[in-house]
């Protein structure tokens, strides 16, 4: 059953990805990208990553879609037609990269392997520590906020940085920027 869900969801993702590649309508692509995130979220649930699924749904399907739509109203809806032919260079690059990754999977632990090295090293301590020391049920939260809390501080700083950047870029009225774009630095006499 798990396997079936897994495969169906992956297939849907594949179809969406191809559709994104194919469509020339940016609005459609944006919506498809949202759908992609939502389907991913479903798959993440199937993979036991409920926290991540939750976030991916909220961010990928929610906020980032809204931002893209906002961008589209400010720019335009359609991609230029000429850009659609298959370009050899990028294709080659992608094939090589993909082949490399697949080559790397050969020595990977099998999917779902309960004895994968990653499960044996640090994880057991986290499980025990969360149960005994921190005493909260959600292990992900325990790691996120305490064991690896510093990463999360960094993550908050990343979000803050994005806010600073967007404010710097879009914080002012458009006319001010247009006026500014043409000037040279004021020469101090």
């Amino acid at each position: 059953m798990e396997l079936l869900i897994d495969i169906v969801l992956l297939a849907i993702l594949g179809i969406i990805a191809v559709a994104i590649l194919w469509t020339r309508h940016l609005f459609v692509a944006t919506m498809l990208s949202g759908a992609y995130s939502l389907t991913s979220a479903a798959l993440l649930v199937a993979l036991d990553a409920v926290d991540v699924a939750f976030t991916e749904a909220a961010v990928g399907a929610g906020i980032s879609t809204v931002l893209m739509l906002g961008t589209l109203t400010l720019t335009r809806r359609r991609e230029k037609a000429t850009n659609r032919r298959v370009s050899i260079g990028p294709l080659l690059l992608v094939i090589v990269t993909g082949a490399l990754l697949i080559y790397g999977t050969v020595d990977m632990p099998a999917f779902g392997d309960p004895n994968a090295p990653a499960l044996l090293h640090v994880v057991p301590e986290y499980l025990a520590g969360t149960r005994d020391d921190i005493q909260i049920p959600n292990i992900v939260t325990a790691i996120l906020a305490s064991y690896r809390g510093f990463d999360t501080l960094g993550e908050t700083a990343v979000i803050f940085t994005a806010g600073v950047g967007v404010l710097l870029l879009l914080g002012r009225r458009r006319e001010e920027d247009e006026e500014a774009g043409t000037r040279r630095p004021e020469r101090e006499a």
């Binding site: 409920v50 926290d51 939750f54 909220a58 049920p137 959600n138 939260t141 906020a145």
Partner: peptide, 11 residues
């Protein structure tokens, strides 16, 4: 309720 169920500050 992030401690107990999925979720937390970011979500």
């Amino acid at each position: 309720h992030g401690d107990f169920s999925p979720g937390g500050g970011f979500q």
